[in-house]
């Protein structure tokens, strides 16, 4: 009997939860705020769904009822992607080591 592709995706999902578990425990507590902002940014990879939805129409009906939701989702996810990565970068740039010559 053939295995349903769903099972493969489920395996990836479960294993990723474990990876996430170990990776996140190794994050230093002082970087927990950047962790939140970067997880925010990467979870906006949901934009791939938004793009598919937005491009579902053809040239005559670019804005159909389903693609409009796609376009709205693109805007939301884009705010998050740019905002999330940039604010993380801004924060991380502030974490400096003690300068010895001071």
């Amino acid at each position: 009997m053939e295995i349903d592709p769903f099972i493969f995706r489920l395996s990836i999902f479960i294993l990723s939860i474990f990876i996430g578990y170990y990776v996140v425990w190794s994050v230093t507590p002082s970087l927990h705020t950047p962790l939140m902002s970067v997880t925010n940014a990467i979870s906006s990879v949901i934009i791939v769904g938004a793009i598919i939805a937005a491009l579902s129409g053809n040239d005559n009906t670019i804005f159909s009822s389903s693609s409009i939701f796609g376009f709205l989702a693109i805007v939301l996810a884009a705010v998050n992607i740019f905002g999330g990565f940039l604010v993380t970068q801004r924060m991380l740039a502030m974490y400096k080591k003690k300068k010895k010559d001071k």
Binding site: R9, S16, G20, V24, G49
Partner: peptide
């Protein structure tokens, strides 16, 4: 992750799982 399953998209599934467990640990 839920949407990732709908779209059958690995990047979304992995990310969803990572973010989900990250938030849970925090």
């Amino acid at each position: 992750a839920g949407i990732g399953f709908t779209l059958e998209n690995t990047a979304l599934i992995i990310t969803g799982a990572l973010v989900g467990s990250s938030g849970a640990i925090l």
